[in-house]
Amino acid sequence: MKKDRHFYWRLFSSTFTLSAFTFGGGYVIVPLMQKRFVKELKWIEEDEMLDLVAIGQSAPGPIAINTSILVGYRMAGIPGALLTVTGTVLPPLIVITIISYFYIAFRDNHLVKALFKGMQAGVAAVIVDVVIEMAARIIRNRRLLAIIVMALSFIAAVLLKINIVIILLFCGILGAYTTLRSKHDARSSPDSGKDESCAEGSGTGGSAGKKEGSD
């Protein structure tokens, strides 16, 4: 693939338009990116794209931002990543900047205030709905440790008012520790071959994609 000005423009404009038309944030943009880069432009293989999405979800930060950084890096290295992250950030940056000026001027209008007050009740309902959904998933998995961690974290945040970062760091370390232990246990059991063959499989898919990308 020729990496001329036209290529970089398409990379930038793709992420810009995807970001501009993704409302509500989060997971919506991921399938759209898949459609654009895998199906329409045929720049990235389906399997490799799935790996990139998984990496994007396992890193901190907004998923839309993470995935676009990965796509940019995959297509054109660090400059590509900078280009796509700029393309993704610009639409909300522009829209919110305009709204925040206009909002400060109109906030004190009686009807606007009433509209916002009503919408906030709706937003609260949306968030409670999301929380119920997520908590139910954790409880349904029936992993006792996860349920305990969830309950204790809530108590720590609401009642004890412990800093969120400290709670997250603690739980991250706990997760790393349990993985290390289960890996250690798996090594001494006959099941251990299974995991490795899985990792091998996704590995070859990824390296094939990389080779294609480097020419």
Binding site: A157, I167, A176
Partner: peptide
């Protein structure tokens, strides 16, 4: 592994914000 450990805590923290 780290993500798995964080997930329930993240749900709890979203709940506390909610």
């Amino acid at each position: 592994g780290i993500i798995k450990g964080l997930r329930p805590a993240v749900v709890a923290l979203i709940a506390s914000a909610g």
